[in-house]
Deep mutational scan, measured.
Amino acid sequence: MTTFKLIINGKTLKGEITIEAVDAAEAEKIFKQYANDNGIDGEWTYDDATKTDTVTE
């Protein structure tokens, strides 16, 4: 398992969460579901060097 981080730069929700996932694709799926569940819809970027997804509304 690898640690992945999501940075949220939303209009109403800001912060970050960290998860353990098998790979980047699994982490992205989990993060996008989390964002959807919390009403966050924005531009996504991924930095492989830091294993960090960022969503900005």
Rank of each mutant, 00 (worst) to 15 (best):
T52N: 02
Y34E: 01
K51F: 09
M1C: 15
W44K: 01
T45S: 11
T45R: 07
M1D: 02
T54D: 03
Y34F: 11
Y34D: 01
D47Y: 09
V55F: 06
K29Q: 08
I17E: 00
A25V: 12
T45L: 11
G42V: 08
G10N: 03
A35I: 12
V22D: 02
K32C: 14
A21H: 03
I19S: 00
A35K: 02
I17K: 01
T18Y: 11
I19F: 05
G42K: 01
K32I: 05
T56V: 11
L13F: 14
D41H: 12
N36R: 14
G10F: 13
T54L: 07
E20P: 01
V55Y: 06
F31G: 00
T54E: 04
A27D: 00
K11G: 09
Q33R: 10
A49H: 08
T12R: 08
N9G: 02
A35H: 02
T18H: 07
W44D: 02
W44S: 02
D47C: 14
D23C: 11
A49T: 10
I40F: 07
V55I: 11
G15N: 08
T56F: 06
F4N: 10
D53W: 15
L13H: 10
T12W: 13
D23T: 09
I19W: 07
I30A: 03
E28R: 15
L6T: 01
K29A: 10
E20A: 06
A24H: 15
A25K: 09
G10R: 01
G39P: 03
E28L: 15
E20S: 09
E20R: 13
T2Q: 11
A27Y: 05
E43G: 05
K14M: 08
F4A: 11
D47M: 09
N38Q: 10
A24E: 06
L13V: 09
E43C: 14
L6N: 00
E28W: 13
T45A: 07
I40H: 02
F31R: 00
W44Q: 02
L13T: 06
G10A: 07
D23K: 02
K32N: 06
W44H: 01
Q33W: 06
N9S: 04
W44A: 02
D41V: 14
T12F: 14
D37A: 13
D53L: 15
I19H: 00
A35L: 14
K14G: 04
Q33K: 12
D37V: 06
I8D: 00
M1P: 05
T54M: 09
T2K: 13
K5G: 00
I8N: 00
E28T: 09
D23R: 01
T56M: 06
A27H: 00
W44R: 01
T12N: 10
T2I: 15
T45P: 03
D53R: 15
K51C: 14
T56N: 07
G15F: 15
L6A: 01
A27K: 02
A35V: 11
N38H: 14
I40G: 01
N9L: 12
I19E: 00
M1H: 08
T12L: 08
D47W: 09
K29Y: 05
T50D: 03
T2C: 15
F31T: 00
K29R: 13
K5V: 12
G10D: 02
D48S: 10
F31D: 00
K5W: 11
Y46G: 01
N36V: 13
I40V: 09
T45G: 05
D47V: 11
I40S: 02
G39W: 06
G10I: 13
A49M: 11
K29F: 10
K29P: 00
Y46L: 06
A25I: 09
L13M: 11
Q33I: 07
A25D: 08
T50A: 07
T52C: 13
K29S: 06
A25E: 11
I40T: 01
T52M: 05
K5D: 05
D41E: 13
I7G: 00
G15H: 13
E57F: 03
K14E: 03
Y46I: 06
E57G: 03
G10T: 14
T56P: 05
E28H: 15
E28P: 00
W44Y: 03
T3Q: 11
I19P: 00
A24V: 08
G10Y: 09
I19D: 00
K5E: 07
K32R: 14
T56R: 07
D41Y: 14
N38R: 09
D47S: 08
I30D: 00
E26M: 10
T12Q: 09
Y46E: 02
K5H: 09
A35P: 01
D23S: 12
A21Q: 06
T52Q: 06
V22Q: 10
K14Y: 13
A25Y: 09
A24P: 06
D23I: 04
K11S: 10
D48F: 12
V22C: 11
A24D: 01
N38P: 02
A27C: 13
G42Q: 03
K5N: 02
W44C: 07
D48R: 08
